[in-house]
Amino acid sequence: KRPMNAFMVWSRGQRRKMAQENPKMHNSEISKRLGAEWKLLSETEKRPFIDEAKRLRALHMKEHPDYK
């Protein structure tokens, strides 16, 4: 399984929150809205998620050196 990218790290928490606030909303609609919100974030707002994704990628490479 591939490590999560920055968007996936961010959206994991956001998706849960949005699903709780809008229980009838379909997952595909939640995904569209999350994608639009992510695009509006500044580089500074994205930075912690980018850093976490880098950390996860490095850990994955260490644990699975033969993974392509």
Rank of each mutant, 00 (worst) to 15 (best):
S42T: 11
M61Q: 14
A19C: 08
F7T: 00
F49P: 02
V9Y: 01
H64I: 12
K24V: 09
K39W: 04
K1P: 06
H60V: 11
G13I: 15
M8P: 00
M61E: 14
E21N: 07
E45V: 04
M25S: 05
Q14A: 09
M61D: 13
E52C: 03
E37H: 05
S42C: 06
L59P: 11
T44N: 13
R2G: 15
V9A: 04
R55A: 08
Q14C: 10
G35I: 13
H64W: 09
A53H: 02
E63D: 12
E45R: 01
P48M: 02
K17L: 12
N22P: 01
A36K: 14
L40C: 12
R57D: 14
E43M: 07
M4A: 08
H64Q: 13
L59A: 12
S11A: 12
K24P: 08
R57K: 12
R16D: 15
S42E: 02
H26I: 07
E21L: 04
R47Q: 12
K32N: 09
R55V: 05
K46P: 01
K32H: 07
K32A: 13
Y67R: 12
Q20F: 07
K54A: 14
N5Y: 02
E45K: 02
A53Y: 01
K39Q: 09
E37M: 13
F49W: 07
L40V: 10
A6W: 00
R47P: 02
A53L: 01
I30A: 04
V9W: 00
K17T: 10
H64K: 14
K46M: 00
I30P: 01
E52S: 03
S42H: 01
P48L: 00
R33A: 04
S11L: 02
E21K: 02
I50W: 06
K32S: 11
N5L: 02
M25Q: 07
M18W: 08
L34K: 00
W10F: 07
K24A: 12
N22Y: 08
E29Q: 06
G35T: 14
S42K: 03
S11R: 00
Q14R: 11
T44K: 13
P23R: 01
D66M: 10
R47N: 04
E52P: 00
R16Q: 15
E21M: 01
K62E: 14
G13H: 10
A19W: 06
R47Y: 02
A53V: 01
P48W: 03
L56Q: 11
Q20L: 11
N22T: 04
K17C: 03
K32T: 09
E43H: 09
K54S: 09
K32V: 08
H64P: 11
R12V: 13
R16H: 15
A36N: 15
G13C: 10
L40T: 10
F7D: 01
L56F: 04
F7P: 00
M8R: 05
K17V: 08
M25E: 07
A36M: 02
W38G: 02
F49R: 00
E29G: 03
Q14D: 02
W38F: 02
F7M: 05
S28P: 05
A19Q: 14
K54Y: 05
L41P: 00
K54D: 14
K62H: 10
E21W: 03
K54G: 06
N27V: 07
K68G: 13
A36L: 06
R55T: 05
A19D: 06
I50M: 10
H26F: 04
H60G: 14
E45Q: 11
N27Q: 12
M4H: 04
L41D: 05
H60T: 14
E52H: 03
S28G: 06
A53Q: 02
L34P: 00
S28N: 14
K62C: 09
P48Q: 04
L40F: 04
K46V: 01
L34W: 03
W10A: 02
E63Y: 07
W10P: 02
E52Q: 04
K62T: 13
F7E: 07
G13F: 14
P23D: 03
K62M: 11
E21R: 03
H26D: 15
K62I: 12
R2E: 15
K39T: 07
S42V: 01
A58S: 13
K62Q: 14
K54N: 14
G35Q: 15
M61S: 14
W38A: 02
R2N: 08
M25V: 06
R2L: 12
R15P: 05
M25R: 01
W38K: 04
G13L: 13
R2D: 15
A19F: 08
S31C: 07
E29P: 01
A58I: 08
H64N: 13
Q14M: 06
S31N: 14
T44L: 09
N27H: 13
A6Y: 01
